[in-house]
């Protein structure tokens, strides 16, 4: 496998992580959309703490998962932009951090706080009140990110995500 050029490996890793995000969103929890949502696949956001390529992977994954969102094109545009921004912020904040647990904590906090974009989108489109929606969406994100942190911590001992 070492013979594969880094560029092709980059493309396939991004594509497959995106596909995994979609598959997990659709198979595992049946309510990954709307005001009260829990998307375990959001836990994959931790990957950006290791390599910036996963910013693209998660953004594509989120766009594709939102293809079936009941809000349709609105979710595809705003949900995807939200993921792009939250993963980019996480990447830059964790870039210089060496310790893995600290990295994972930073991404958890950033992603949980950044769910305001989802709450705002739902607030504008469906007129649900902003703060309670922010609360429920952020709580769902926090649970997913907590699981993701455990998962990525265990996995990074076996798979080198930075490569």
């Amino acid at each position: 496998m070492e013979k594969v050029s880094t560029k092709t490996a980059e493309v396939t890793k991004i594509a497959l992580v995106a596909a995994l995000y979609v598959a997990v969103t659709m198979v595992i929890v049946p309510f990954g959309y709307g005001a009260i949502q829990l998307r375990l696949s959001e836990g994959f956001n931790h990957l950006v703490a290791f390599n910036k390529r996963y910013i693209i992977a998660l953004t594509i994954g989120c766009a594709l998962a939102n293809l079936v969102s009941p809000l349709g094109i609105v979710d595809i545009v705003f949900g995807t932009l939200g993921t792009l921004v939250m993963t980019t912020i996480s990447y830059f904040l964790t870039k210089r951090v060496k310790s893995v647990p600290v990295k994972l904590t930073i991404t958890t906090v950033v992603c949980t706080l950044m769910t305001w974009s989802v709450a705002l989108e739902l607030n504008i489109v469906t007129k649900v009140p902003f703060w309670p929606t922010y609360g429920t969406v952020a709580l769902g994100e926090l649970l997913s990110m907590a699981l993701g942190a455990i998962l990525v911590y265990l996995l990074q001992k076996r798979i080198d995500f930075t490569k």
Partner: peptide
């Protein structure tokens, strides 16, 4: 990016089955 999207779409059903 388009290639990645096509690949991802191709692998979603496969990974869903695997899950």
């Amino acid at each position: 990016i388009a290639l990645m999207i096509s690949l991802a779409l191709r692998f979603v059903p496969t990974l869903m089955d695997e899950t």
